[in-house]
């Protein structure tokens, strides 16, 4: 495999993490004349929370590292060092829980929901799109697909709201929100698993329905381009069956840019799923972020944002590393 390709991708990943992390540090400090974190901590100390004692300690620690008396480069180094150790400080709102603990509790929910619905949407959408770009596909297919295509640019959570109203509020077929029945303890029983699946259906469905159209649309374009390629024409001249041409020649090649598209859209998809979680009060990172924003819990916000950037960077890297397995031109490039 071409090692230059791998090195490039890994470097890009590191660059993404570094730039992203630095943005979290510098952007808030661009705000004129105030450190919102210090301000928030000051407010808390003044009003006196429940855990005043611990909070005071935290404020002290924060001042020591990031106080205005420290030069900026030193604050930056302190900050980068903390991030590298996944030390995001305490949650301001849920002290004494740390940001890391809370995020870790939320991650499995988000990953589960996201992975299943994205893979489903990608697989179904690509197949539908390939069929839409295939001249032999019956006309009905186009009629059936059009509403999905129209929804391809609609944010997931907008569909989520509509589905929630219809299926959960009106017909009461599915739960209105949450990740499992309130108060249940996670156990490895069929009952619990079913409960989780039951709760995930609506949020997942809203992501799949919107995603299918998106992938179908781009796959249709790729498919049309691929069908114009000489090797497809020659495959027909060689007498291959339409089925063979569809799968092995057209779709197989059209899926390549589609995979690149998946890597490029990782951020948009994750952002979309976070918002779906907010709407459905799903116990993943989205809800954590939402609560952090409404509660001015800055450490929490920065922690979640860091993880989001890390996750998207890692997913992109993974897809970039899988890509050569699909495309021999990169796998066997002699450069």
């Amino acid at each position: 495999m071409s090692s230059r390709y791998i090195v490039r991708r890994v470097l890009l990943f590191l660059l993404v993490i570094w730039v992203g992390t630095s943005l979290i540090f510098f952007l808030p400090r661009l705000a004129p004349d105030r450190d919102p974190v210090a301000q928030r901590l000051g407010n808390l100390a003044a009003t006196g929370g429940i855990n005043t004692e611990g909070l005071d300690e935290m404020v002290e620690a924060y001042r020591a590292k990031f106080g205005l008396d420290q030069p900026l480069w030193k604050q930056y180094l302190n900050y980068m060092f903390d991030m590298l150790r996944f030390d995001f400080n305490y949650s301001i709102a849920m002290y004494p829980a740390t940001v890391f603990e809370i995020v870790m509790r939320a991650v499995p929910w988000t990953v589960g929901l996201l992975l299943v619905s994205t893979l489903l949407a990608f697989a179904i959408g690509s197949l539908v799109g390939a069929l839409l770009g295939w001249p032999r596909t019956p006309r009905v297919m186009h009629w059936v697909a059009t509403p999905f295509l129209m929804m391809s640019s609609v944010p997931y959570y907008i569909l989520g709201l509509v589905m929630m109203y219809v299926f959960a509020f009106k017909f009461k077929w599915l739960p209105l929100g949450g990740g499992s029945q309130y108060g249940t303890v996670p156990t490895l029983t069929w009952q619990y698993v079913w409960d989780v699946v039951h709760h995930a259906i609506l949020p997942a469905a809203s992501m799949v329905v919107a995603g299918v159209g998106f992938w179908a649309l781009s796959m249709r374009g790729m498919m049309v381009t691929t069908l114009g390629e000489d090797y497809v024409m020659l495959a027909e001249a060689r007498g291959l069956s339409p089925r063979r041409i569809f799968f092995r020649y057209a779709m197989r090649n059209a899926i390549l840019p589609q995979t690149t598209g998946l890597a490029l859209s990782a951020g948009t998809i994750l952002s979309g799923s976070l918002l779906v979680e907010v709407i459905f009060r799903y116990p993943g990172m989205g809800s954590v972020l939402y609560r952090a924003i409404t509660g001015f819990d800055y450490f929490m916000i920065y922690g979640v944002v860091f993880f989001v950037i890390l996750a998207v960077g890692a997913a992109t890297l993974l897809l970039d590393l899988i890509y050569p397995l699909l495309d021999p031109r990169i796998r066997y490039s002699r450069k």
Binding site: L12, L27, A31, A266, G267, I293, I301, I309
Partner: peptide, 16 residues
């Protein structure tokens, strides 16, 4: 493009 826009926007917007 790789850094999710929403993440960066959240950081800016939450401050102001």
């Amino acid at each position: 493009l790789t850094i999710p826009a929403l993440a960066v926007l959240v950081v800016i917007a939450s401050v102001i």
